[in-house]
Write a protein that binds this DNA or RNA. Structure first.
Length: 195
DNA sequence: TCTAAGATGGGT
DNA sequence: CCCATCTTAGAA
C-alpha cells in the first residue's frame, strides 16, 4: 500500500539497498493492468567497480540514466533479447544501481502466464524472465518509481540468516571485481535463478 | 561505418 | 554445448 520513500533509494550504500530490497514488492501497471512480484534476488552495481556499465563514471547514451538521482528505473536490452530491470540508487551524479534478478509472483499470476507462456516455476526466476512476466520494457527506462507505472512497496521482512550473499552472475569480464559478493538472495526460495 | 561482445534464456 | 538477436561502445 505504501511506496518506498525516495530516501530509501538515495542512500550511499548500494549493497545495503540491494539487501533491503529483498522481500519488497515490485508493481507494474501496463496498459491499466496491475501485476506484482516479491523480490527474492538482487545484485549491486557501482561506478566504483568494473562490472558496472558506468564504471569510473563512464557517461554514454545508455548509462546516463544511472546518473539520475536514486529512485528511477534503469531498463536496458541484454543480448538483443532481454529487458533487464535495475533500480538507480545514490544521489545524482553517483551512478549505482540494483539489478532485480528474480521475484516470486505476488499479484495477477494469470497475466504473467499469458506473457511468459511457460511453466510456473520459470515464470519469474531470472532477470529477463521477471521483466517479461511484469511487462517491463525499455519504454519504462528512466521513469521515477514514485509514479503509477512502476513502483516498489513494503513487503516481507527477512532475518539476516535467511539472506545469502555471494558472487554476481555473468560478470567474468570484470576481472577481480567479479569476486565481489554483491549478489543477494533468499535462502531456499524456489524462484531464485540458478547458477 | 564497422564490429565484437554482452548483468540471458531456452533448447539439444 | 549451441544459438537467437540487436544495441551499444569503441575502433577505424
Amino acid at each position: 500500500m505504501t511506496k518506498l520513500t525516495k530516501e530509501f533509494y538515495l542512500r550511499d550504500d548500494v549493497n545495503q539497498i540491494a539487501r533491503d530490497l529483498l522481500g519488497k514488492i515490485v508493481f507494474t501497471r501496463i496498459e491499466g493492468v496491475v501485476s506484482a512480484g516479491k523480490i527474492v534476488e538482487t545484485e549491486a552495481y557501482s561506478f566504483r567497480e568494473k562490472a558496472c556499465h558506468a564504471h569510473m563514471k563512464r557517461f554514454t547514451e545508455r548509462t546516463k540514466i544511472m546518473f539520475m538521482p536514486g529512485g528511477h528505473a534503469y531498463v536496458y536490452l541484454c543480448y538483443g533479447i532481454h529487458n533487464l530491470f535495475n533500480i538507480v540508487t545514490n544521489t545524482e551524479g553517483l551512478p549505482e544501481a540494483v539489478l532485480i534478478r528474480a521475484v516470486e509472483p505476488h499479484k495477477n499470476i494469470e497475466i504473467m502466464r499469458e506473457r511468459r507462456r511457460t511453466t510456473d516455476k520459470h515464470l519469474t526466476s531470472g532477470p529477463g524472465k521477471l521483466s517479461e512476466a511484469l511487462g517491463i520494457t525499455r519504454k519504462l527506462n528512466g521513469i521515477p518509481l514514485s509514479g503509477n507505472d512502476l513502483w516498489i512497496e513494503e513487503g516481507e521482512e527477512y532475518r539476516e540468516a535467511d539472506i545469502i550473499s555471494t558472487t554476481r552472475i555473468g560478470v567474468d569480464y570484470a576481472g577481480e571485481d567479479a569476486m565481489l559478493p554483491w549478489r543477494y538472495y533468499i535462502r531456499d526460495n524456489t524462484f531464485v535463478s540458478k547458477k
